[in-house]
């Protein structure tokens, strides 16, 4: 999976209340949730996002609640991939389950600025920064998670299990 887009940079410990405040959790519709993506960080944040843009974050992105509405809001906002120094663990599972790939870049995040243009190859674990010319190589997505993505996410995986037996 390869994506090219413009970076929207956010800081450390962006919590799920920042990604999608609880008052919007009265729907499960990704499009509706997407309208309020990051509203707990900056009201109106989503208006700067073009479909295909890339979210880049600091440490512990997605900490806090287990709400799957958080990756859904990001997908609903048209963001196909998130890069971060590190991810909170529930969010990490939720991202892949919802079909939102996540790449852990560690300290290399510090070489990326707001507005940079990136091409991200999730399968190979390569991030090309067109604005600086730099190439960042990271651990690709674990094989286990890729298998699940290939099965169409967790929903597809369970469908297979139930259909074909364990």
């Amino acid at each position: 999976m390869v994506v090219t887009g413009t970076v929207h940079l956010v800081g450390d410990h962006i919590d799920t209340d920042a990604i999608i405040p609880a008052r919007f959790l009265v729907t499960t519709d990704p499009q509706e949730l997407g309208k309020h993506c990051m509203e707990g960080l900056t009201p109106g944040w989503v208006q700067r996002v073009q479909r295909g843009d890339i979210l880049v974050a600091g440490e512990n992105f997605g900490c806090g609640s287990s709400r799957e509405h958080a990756p859904l809001a990001i997908l609903g906002a048209g963001i196909p991939v998130v890069l971060a120094k590190s991810f909170a663990r529930i969010f990490y599972r939720n991202g892949f389950n919802m079909g939102l790939p996540l790449l852990e870049l560690g300290e290399a995040v510090d070489t990326i600025a707001d507005g940079h243009r990136l091409t991200v190859d999730v399968t190979q674990g390569v991030v090309e920064n067109h604005s600086t010319g730099a190439q960042i190589h990271v651990q690709p997505v674990p094989a286990f998670m890729l298998e699940m993505l290939q099965a169409g996410g967790l929903v597809g995986y369970v469908r297979q299990r139930l259909g074909g037996g364990a």
Partner: peptide, 14 residues
């Protein structure tokens, strides 16, 4: 431990 809704859905099914 906490998990997302779909992870828990899978656990409820399997």
């Amino acid at each position: 431990t906490g998990l997302g809704s779909t992870d828990v859905a899978a656990a409820m099914a399997l």
